[in-house]
């Protein structure tokens, strides 16, 4: 009978379920400022109520407080001006130090690529939804896997770990629409960002003067902090020119994502992350002599 009763209220049930789903989505999606939408909306609504409630009281206090505060404004302004001046000088010193560190780092060629520690894994499932390019492998946190570890195959880069569990891990493939990696053209060293398109790859943010030809190999640049430098991503398939810059650079992936059965997970942090330590020591070096 209860079920029949619900069936007579199909519309209400539909609305209730829809609202439930929207609340669920809102709890996960962040606003431009990085706050969950649900929290932002709830906070926004209650903030307005609080604003109205306190406006009467604060209105009465405002005139007296403002009058007293005005007397202190000049003194505070002078103090702040001095502080801004000191901070500007400090900022310039920091910039100079950072520039010196970068130059020394480049000179000393500290970005050496260490041998990679890897763990082999078998692919046990694909993505649950055709709109997301993911797959599941049979290794997890118990084998040392962590989020954002690179996943590679003999042919090239496969993707990165996004959700590891104890005995399995979800891998976001590089061809997923939300995936990206720092890439460079092996022949000309032109850099850009390789992004997934759902079924293939494209290269963006490439300088308009870069030397790029169809057939060029694209490898990882290592600047993203996930993929080690020098691993094959694919080959330039087509290059279209836009207005004064590259319109679209399509890349044919080196890996056949439909036939992957086994992969390697890179346990060693990429060189870009390791460079932070030598960079700091390089930054400290000028002070020594």
């Amino acid at each position: 009978m209860a079920l029949l009763d619900i069936r007579q209220r199909t519309g209400y049930l539909f609305i209730a379920l829809t609202i439930g789903q929207i609340i669920l989505i809102s709890a996960q999606v962040n606003t431009a400022r990085g706050i969950p939408v649900l929290e932002a909306v709830t906070f926004g609504v209650f903030a307005e109520i609080q604003r109205v409630a306190s406006s009467g009281l604060s209105g009465m206090r405002a005139s007296w407080t403002d009058y007293v505060a005005l007397q202190e404004v000049r003194t505070e302004n002078e103090r702040l001006r001095d502080e801004v001046g000191r901070l500007r000088v400090g900022l310039q010193q920091e910039r100079a130090l950072a520039q010196r560190s970068r130059t020394l780092e480049q000179l000393l060629e500290l970005r050496t690529q260490a041998d990679l520690a890897t763990v082999a894994a078998n692919v046990i499932a694909g993505g649950a939804s055709p709109d997301f390019r993911t797959m599941t492998i049979d290794r997890g946190t118990g084998d040392g896997l962590r989020p954002d570890m690179a996943v590679i195959a003999p042919a090239g880069v496969v993707g990165r770990i996004i959700t590891p569990s104890a005995r399995a891990a979800k891998v976001q493939l590089l061809i997923d629409r939300n995936a990206a990696a720092g890439g460079l053209v092996e022949r000309s060293r032109a850099q850009g960002v390789v992004e997934g398109t759902g079924g293939g790859l494209r290269m963006s943010y490439v300088s308009g003067t870069a030397d790029i030809q169809v057939g060029d190999a694209v490898v990882t640049s290592g600047i993203d902090g996930i993929y080690p430098k020098g691993f094959v991503i694919g080959q330039i398939e087509s290059v279209e020119w836009g207005e004064g810059s590259f319109g679209a650079i399509a890349i044919r992936p080196a890996v056949d994502f439909s036939s992957i059965e086994a992969v390697l997970v890179v346990l060693t942090p990429p060189a870009a992350v390791e460079d932070e330590t030598p960079g700091e020591s390089a930054g400290a070096a000028p002070a020594a002599p």
Binding site: L17, T18, I22, L24, D131
Partner: peptide
């Protein structure tokens, strides 16, 4: 009723197994 309950449940499960926002596929 059966359709929307099944759709809601299946969508949420699919969202949870994918890397997307849980609830969008459900909705």
């Amino acid at each position: 009723v059966t359709g929307m309950l099944a759709g809601s449940f299946a969508g949420i499960i699919q969202d949870a197994l994918s890397s997307g926002v849980i609830g969008i596929g459900g909705l």
